[in-house]
């Protein structure tokens, strides 16, 4: 299970796991898409961005925050992310389709990604972290 929701009263708390750090980041993005877009978007449009950040949690925080920014200003419903780590941070490719109310409404608007509880740790299966989305 790449991610599952844990109980949180006010917001959406996700436990995210990945065999590699790349998977962990991609799964965290998937967790975010599952909150925002209940029906899976087609992969018709692509958004690319790069980030320069060394710290693991800060990089994950910035990556997810950047997704929120692009989803809103480009008005796309997203379904998948691909991450490539670089020497100075990461480059990301997001896949989705133009947001249409009749298909994509009903999701939850995520206001922000909290740093609260975010800690990337090594597990027997790979990597794990909590991610809290303010909704």
């Amino acid at each position: 299970m790449p991610f599952f929701e844990r109980e949180h009263t006010a917001d959406v708390l996700m436990q995210v796991c990945g065999a590699t750090k790349k998977e962990l980041f991609e799964d965290a993005a998937q967790a975010l898409f599952s909150v925002m877009f209940p029906s899976r978007a087609k992969e018709e449009a692509t958004i690319r961005f790069t980030l320069h950040e060394e710290d693991g949690e800060q990089l994950l925080h910035e990556f997810l925050s950047e997704i929120l920014y692009y989803a809103e200003v480009e008005c796309v419903a997203l379904s998948r992310a691909e991450v490539t780590f670089t020497s100075s941070g990461l480059s990301a490719e997001l896949f989705g389709e133009p947001f249409r109310r009749e298909k994509h409404a009903g999701g939850t608007e995520v206001k922000g990604v909290s740093l609260s509880g975010m800690e990337i740790t090594r597990t027997d299966e790979g990597w794990s972290t909590l991610v809290l989305f303010d909704v």
């Binding site: 949180h8 009263t9 006010a10 917001d11 909290s114 740093l115 609260s116 509880g117 809290l132 303010d134």
Partner: peptide, 9 residues
């Protein structure tokens, strides 16, 4: 009051 992040709500 309820559980939020940072400060409680």
């Amino acid at each position: 009051i309820h559980w939020g992040y940072g400060f409680p709500i």
